[in-house]
Design a binder for these strands. Structure first.
Length: 377
RNA sequence: GGGGGAAUACCCAAGUGGCCAAAGGGGGCAGACUGUAAAUCUGUUGUCACCGACUUCGGUGGUUCAAAUCCACCUUCCCCCA
């Protein structure tokens, strides 16, 4: 099955200093250099940006969400439109998340059973049941390049017994997803490793998940509030188990420190709402650390968001102007902050890839952190 | 000229004897945000020597144990009639 997969990982180089991987992810909608950051466009749009803008920032793949598009506008409509790529005018690769994260984030409006998850729609409260089979069918209709199994992203603070049961159910759901997927030639199904913050459960989940011989593996249920060192520990347990010829995707990670540390621990793919959400909420990620440009201290600051940035926002606008736009509730303000944040992370990944090629990723990390630390008060 | 109404914190606006340093919005200030129910949410917003004290509800004086709330006069604004 693997050899027929529409998505293939090509390993280019392993950093001699850190063990990090550089590679290429071949998809039906283009080749993607890894490690890669994938902007999130839940509702078939990266909020505040046009697809052309997202593409111009260097993104070759974005996320969309099964649950949200199922609820609205409905996957049949997207199929009728000619698939997600055509519907949203995005010619590059798309990865759809299965709705597993909504099991976590909409926990107040959902019930988990062996058969699947029943949701009360966040839009109108109507009851819907998402099963592993339906999650595949919806993603088939959407036509994304990479599809995710239905999993349960459990609360990391849940007790061990629950996490174990949840991870095992996620494996049973994977089996059903694989069966439903039927070796589709155009879409690659990724499995998701769960197991919370328990090393043995993570190990069990990883070992079981790879028996399905899938074109890629994700690590889920992390970066949901647990301490960073626990997350790093889980990665150190899981990535050595995952096959070297397949991409490894750490779901939901997007702060610069997590990205760098994740790559060092063998991760190839990341996605996160952080840059777009932070931007809309008036915060920018810079080479000197996070900066809440909405704050009064920048009212008269006529320097760029990040003095070391070459993005459109930083080349043309000042902190003072962008703060003014945000305070005045002008759309351009959050477009510019989003623009910058996406550029920053995509550029960071590009620098990480180059550092891997030079076998200097650890040096790069130390330099990066000293820059941000130097500006912390 | 006559009659009626209103003045509350940065703004709007509740409150008509003690539970009022004073509801609620807005604005301001700050914090949070990591497979997006998020252009959202949370906190804070009289002063200070801040688990306590002090000064406030147009102004002045009064009634009362107690006043943003009651009384008198004054000031300003709005509406109606001439």
């Amino acid at each position: 099955m693997t050899t027929d997969s529409p998505v293939k990982y090509e390993l280019l180089h392993v950093c001699k200093q850190s063990g990090a991987r550089r590679g290429i992810l071949h998809t039906p909608h283009g080749d993607i250099e890894t490690p890669v950051f994938m902007p999130v466009g839940t509702q078939a749009t990266v909020k505040a940006m046009t697809p052309e803008e997202v593409s111009s920032l260097g993104a070759g793949i974005v996320l969309a969400n099964t649950y949200h598009l199922w609820m609205r506008p409905g996957h049949d409509l997207v199929r009728e439109a000619g698939g997600l790529h055509k519907f949203m005018n995005w010619p590059h690769a798309i990865l759809t998340d299965s709705g597993g994260f909504q099991v976590f984030s909409l926990s107040g409006a959902r019930k988990i059973k062996e058969e699947g998850v029943s949701f009360n729609s966040h839009i109108d409260g109507s009851l819907h049941e998402l099963t592993p089979e339906l999650a595949i069918d919806i993603q088939t209709a959407l036509g994304s390049d990479i599809i995710m199994q239905l999993d349960e992203c459990a609360d990391w603070r849940a007790d061990r017994g629950y996490i174990k049961a949840s991870a095992e159910r996620t494996l049973r759901w994977l089996e059903r997803c694989v069966k439903q997927h039927k070796n589709d030639a155009k879409q690659a199904l990724f499995g998701i490793v769960q197991g919370g913050v328990y090393e043995d459960l993570r190990k069990m989940s990883a070992e079981q998940t790879i028996t399905f011989d899938l074109p890629g593996y994700a690590i889920g249920g992390l970066s949901v509030g647990e301490p960073a060192d626990i997350m790093y520990k889980m990665l150190e347990v899981v990535t050595p188990i995952l096959p070297a010829d397949k991409p490894r995707y750490l779901m939901g990670v997007g702060s610069p420190d997590y990205l760098i540390e994740g790559v060092i621990r063998g991760i190839d793919m990341f996605d996160c709402v952080l840059p777009t959400r932070l931007g809309r909420n008036g915060t920018v990620i810079t080479s000197q650390g996070q900066l809440t440009v909405r704050n009064a201290s920048y009212a008269g600051d006529f320097t760029p968001l990040d003095p070391n940035c070459s993005c459109y926002a930083c080349q043309n606008y000042t902190r003072a102007y962008i703060r003014h736009l945000i305070k005045a509730n002008e759309i351009l303000g959050l477009r510019l902050t989003t623009w910058h944040n996406l550029h920053f992370l995509l550029n960071l990944m590009s620098e990480i890839r180059e550092a891997i090629s030079r076998d200097e990723l650890l040096d790069f990390r130390d330099h990066f952190f000293s820059q941000t630390a130097a500006h912390k008060e």
